[in-house]
Design a protein around this nucleic acid. Structure first.
Length: 283
DNA sequence: AAAACTACCTGAGTGC
DNA sequence: TGCACTCAGGTAGTTT
């Protein structure tokens, strides 16, 4: 299930295969994703990929007509794809001869003969297009800062917590506060910081919030370095699994011993989501 | 206004 | 073997 590190891993994997290439043709085999794939996605036919970026868990692919390359004025037929991998999505680069898989919903035919395929069994993801700046798109406009970016400062984080009485786990998972921290990394970060997931955000000392701030960034950074977490169906754009799962301390470990103190890891439901923690290490 | 809840979806896993 | 059932979970939209 792609979280921020998986999306970053995907971006890095597909970028060198896409930038500078033309997209000759798009095939839409299944348009019924989280939202219907708009027919305007097909307008990308013939455009050239300028950049591949990530914002939160969205992959942004910016394209221009070949004649406009370098103008970067946002007009003249520029177009961007906004792709979300949802729970089970992946983007893979393959050659055209590779047989289609059952859930390969979109196929982007590239000018060098390769293809990029959007695969998503559970169809929780989306593929949308826009001619405007992606930052203004409805889905991206209200997102908080990137957890690994410069605008996510310690002061900002502490202040946001002091304003909220919600459980700290729900606070760090709220996209308006900071993006890209899903269930797995929220659990892991709280374990690393020694903070109980249900503790109200405003009821945590600034020293402990500082630990959490660094824990969030460390956990995400480390996971990106490992190529993401493989749970069930995540593989990178080459089809290789990530290795971060081998380092999970609490997530999915209900009933097993804490690596730190041997206490049995507990599971509770918080915000409709399974939440794993060590009752002894996290207060 | 903020928080809580729901719908969307299908593959994997479990129990009978 | 196969059927019925549960669980996983990001996000926007709805309800409280």
């Amino acid at each position: 299930m792609p979280e921020l590190p998986e999306v970053e891993t995907t971006c890095r994997g597909i970028r060198p295969h896409l930038v500078g290439k033309h997209i000759n043709h798009v095939e839409i085999h299944q348009k019924q994703l989280r939202w219907p794939v708009p027919s305007t996605v097909a307008n990308i036919d013939g455009l050239t990929v300028n950049t591949v970026e990530r914002r939160a868990k969205y992959i942004l692919i910016h394209c221009s007509p070949a004649s406009n390359l370098g103008q970067n004025d946002g007009k003249n037929g520029d177009m961007s794809l906004i792709i979300h991998l949802g729970m089970s999505g992946s983007l893979r680069i393959t050659d055209a001869a590779t047989p289609l898989k059952k859930h390969d919903h979109l196929v982007f035919q590239l000018s060098d003969g390769q293809q990029m395929r959007y695969h998503d069994p559970r169809r929780f993801g989306c593929v949308l297009s826009t001619h405007e700046s992606c930052d203004n798109h409805k889905l991206l406009a209200k997102l908080g800062p990137e957890p690994l970016g410069e605008t996510f400062t310690l002061d900002y984080f502490i202040h946001s917590c002091q304003q909220s009485k919600r459980a700290i786990k729900l606070h760090i998972m709220a996209n308006a506060i900071v993006v890209g921290i899903g269930n797995i990394y929220a659990c892991e970060s709280l374990f690393l910081a020694g903070i109980h997931p249900t503790r109200p955000a405003s009821n945590i000392s600034t020293a402990r919030l500082e630990s959490l701030y660094h824990a969030v960034r460390l956990v995400l950074q480390r996971s990106i370095e490992q190529g993401g977490t493989t749970l069930k169906d995540f593989t990178n754009s080459d089809g290789q699994p990530g290795y971060f799962q081998q380092q999970l301390e609490v997530y999915g470990r209900e009933g097993k011993s804490c690596h730190n103190c041997n206490t049995i890891i507990k599971r509770i439901t918080l915000g409709q989501r399974s939440t794993f923690y060590c009752h002894s290490c996290q207060k």
